[in-house]
């Protein structure tokens, strides 16, 4: 296929979902973020820790809004976030002097690692990036960033997904675990 011709697209979008799907996506994401944010603001914040990071907003789209997607399954949610957090912290600690390089390496290596381990989860890229650009509060966590907020937050989001997504007859989560 001609190089420029490829840019024309030509495919079609999948159909719009029904109202029930919108409703349950809303309930799920509201509950998931509420749980994470409550723990963050009422418990961990006072201890100088955090549970909420920007990439969880993106995870919510997948695990509450596109629950059939392979990208939204537990293997991908947990594996993608945890691996990317490790890569992100490592990139900052080794290359932090060159923030532009640390940012690019963190995200690109995360994507490669997620592909190789079959844990591709788009918000993982954000988790890796946040480890570099998240500021002093993130940097001082060191590798603790992998466990809290990343792993713990993802687990809380997953528990809410298991509870909420399986309530309606039309939904089932997960498609597979690992």
């Amino acid at each position: 296929m001609n190089y420029l011709h490829k840019m024309k697209g030509g495919g079609q979008s999948p159909p719009k979902v029904g109202w029930a799907e919108v409703f349950w996506s809303w309930i799920g994401s509201f509950s998931g973020l509420a749980a994470v944010a409550l723990i963050h603001y009422n418990i961990l914040d006072e201890m100088g820790l955090m549970l909420i990071i920007g990439s969880f907003g993106a995870s919510a789209v997948l695990i509450y809004g596109a629950i059939r997607s392979p990208l939204a399954q537990p293997r991908n949610l947990l594996g993608g976030h945890i691996l990317s957090a490790i890569v992100g912290v490592t990139a900052f600690q080794w290359l932090g002097g060159q923030p532009w390089l640390a940012a690019a390496v963190a995200v690109s290596i995360s994507i490669a690692m997620m592909h190789l381990t079959m844990t591709l989860h788009p918000p993982g890229g954000a988790t890796a990036l946040i480890a570099v650009i998240g500021g002093e509060s993130v940097h001082q966590l060191g590798y603790l960033y992998v466990v809290i907020p990343t792993a713990l937050g993802a687990i809380v989001m997953l528990i809410v997904a298991l509870i909420i997504n399986n309530i309606p007859k039309s939904r089932k989560y997960p498609e597979f675990w690992f």
Binding site: Q12, P15, E21, S69, S170, R171
Partner: peptide, 13 residues
């Protein structure tokens, strides 16, 4: 795809 509830993240093509 319309007969299957939930967002299916694959293009029809």
């Amino acid at each position: 795809m319309k007969h299957i509830t939930g967002y299916i993240d694959i293009t029809p093509g």
